[in-house]
Structure formats: C-alpha cells, structure tokens
Amino acid sequence: MSGNNVIGEAAIRAGCRFYAGYPITPQNELTEYMAEHMRTVEGGVFLQSESEIAAINMIAGASATGVRVMTSSSSPGISLKQEGISSMAACELPGIIVNIMRGGPGLGNIRPSQGDYFQATRGGGHGDYRTIVIAPATGQELADLTMDAFDLADKYRMPVMILADGMMGQMMEPVIFKKPNPRQYPEKFMLRGAGTGKSKFIHGLILDPIDSEAHNWKLARKYQVIAENETLFEEHRVDDAELVIVAYGTSARIAKGAIKRLRSHGMKIGLFRPITLWPFPELKLRALSAKIKNFLVFEMSTGQMLEDVRLALQGYANIEFHGRPGGAVPTPSELANVVARVYNKKDL
C-alpha cells in the first residue's frame, strides 16, 4: 500500500466516518481511497467538496455531530484550510488534517518538501491556538500514528495534523494495522438536536473580551498539558554519538541512510527525530546536549525546524544546518558528505 492509502485505511479502521477533500497532487490517492472505501462502511460519508475551504468546514460540521472526521490536502490546499482549522481550534472540534507537503511557496511544485513546518507548528491560521502535529517517517508509523491522531484529537478536542510529504505519500512499505482503541468521546460535546432538553451552541465568537480572554487561557492551559504529556521522538545511535543530526519525516529516513554510511567510516553520528513537531520534544533534545555538543539540522526547507532546535538547545551546543527546499530531495550520500565535512571540521 502507498503511504496515502495507508493513511486512508488506518483512518477508516480508527472509526473515521466522514471525509471531505478536494483534488490536489500529491495526495490524490488518499482522496480516491476514501471515495472507494468510505461509502462501503456503515455510516461512512465521503464528500468531494467544491474547495479546500468547504472541505475543512464540512469536517467541522460533521465533527460537531460526534463523528470522527478527516480531510487531506497538500500545501497550497492546506493554506486554504487555515480558516477552518482556526475555527475548529476555537470551537474545540476534533478532526484530522493530513498535509502531504509539496514544494512551495505559492504553487511551487509537486515534489516532496518540508516547507510547511512553520505553518503547521505555529497554528497556521489566525489567533492564539496550536494544532498537534505528527510527522511519521515510515509506512508503519503512518498507520499507527494516524490511528493515534484520532485518539489525541478526541482527548483534547482539537484538530490534529499529520504532516508528511510527497515521498511518504507515494512510497509503499509493508504495514500491519493495529487494533484501534475504543472511542471515548462524551456525548455532551455532540450536537445532534436538542431533543426535549436544553439547546446547545458551538461557537468561537466571543464578543466580550473578558470571556474571550478566559477562553484563550483555557485553550493555552490545554496546550500546556499537551506539551508536557504528548511529545514523541526517536533517538537513533545517539549513545556514543559526537554529532547528532536532527531531522523528521522523509529527511530522517535520508539521514538514517547517511548515518549508516558515516558509521561504516568510523564517524560517530546519531539521529534525533522529533515525531511530534508540536509539541516539539525540546526537553529531550536539551537533555541530549548535556553530552553532545554538535548538532546538524537537516530539512527539506530553508530552515524552519532549525528555529525550534535553537530554542531547545539555548546556545548550549553548536548547530549546523543543511537544507534542500522547493521540492529537492537529497540522497543519503549527499547528506553524508555534508555531515562528514562538518564532523571533520569540528575535529572530533
């Protein structure tokens, strides 16, 4: 199964019953997968929307009724969705947004890229909010983390973004789907008609500044809890490492390939791979800097996660950067050459 299809299948297995999307390369296989499979499961709704904006608002509406929901797109389409993502954050509606990143800015190109890191991790739309951002690096993680994303979205009642790129979306790897957790989402948050009871309203408009401030702080406290409890990361061969590459998603795969080469030449290189980009696993990274003083951030961008690494390391270590923006995908040997130069320069 291609990565796009894995996300779709994992979502359906996790109980996603509403999907809306609009065609854009390189995530079309996911929309097509949902078109083929969503309508064959009980209660499943697939809607091809008239736009990305409609799609995100459709999933917001469906989410409000208490259904597990997902939409997907690629970079320019995700820009369009920001209105709805901000709105879902404000209204505390759970939902999954998949971004199969491509080269930017603007229309850019349809090659794999990681240029949407800032947009994803800083909220992306207007207002004081965050989305949980998960960056899988293997087919198996696409399956597992997509399922987990639904649980996180429910737990914290907020949009969760799966941030992958064209390569993750197109690549095929063997995958084993795990059993999904039973859903725990209280009925009191669902909008299904008032019956004989009191009517509910879901809204993000709060005209009174005191109430609005309270709402913002409430959201901020929630984000704080998430930051403290939900970081995910992988450490790869860091125990004896003298230089650690920091990379996520596809870049981390390339980095692992490079590390294999470098290790065979006796260079002690490791990898720190954030799996959640927000919350960024900054404490773990900082802890690493107690014994490792050289880091190299590698991204398929001009340097976005780089800023989070700087914030995390707070000047306690040297940070180098290698980036390939705009849809360029480096090979492991290219990265290995860059890393070797840095490694040798440091005279480690």
């Binding site: 509403f18 809306a20 709704v45 809607l47 929307s49 008239e50 904006i53 409609a54 799609a55 608002n57 459709m58 999933i59 917001a60 509406g61 469906a62 409000a64 009724t65 209105e83 709805g84 709105s87 209204c91 909008l191 299904r192 008609g193 008032a194 009517s199 509910k200 309203f201 879901i202 809204h203 993000g204 408009l205």
Partner: peptide
C-alpha cells in the same frame, strides 16, 4: 432555542451539508 453551530464567513452550507 435549537442546537446551533457557528460557521466561518460564508461556510454555512458546507457545514450544514456535512451535518
């Protein structure tokens, strides 16, 4: 006095469709 959900500018019918 019925259940309601706010839609961002202009998106009401998309939301209503999904609901």
């Amino acid at each position: 006095d019925v259940d309601m959900i706010e839609a961002p500018h202009g998106r009401g019918p998309a939301m209503a469709s999904a609901i």
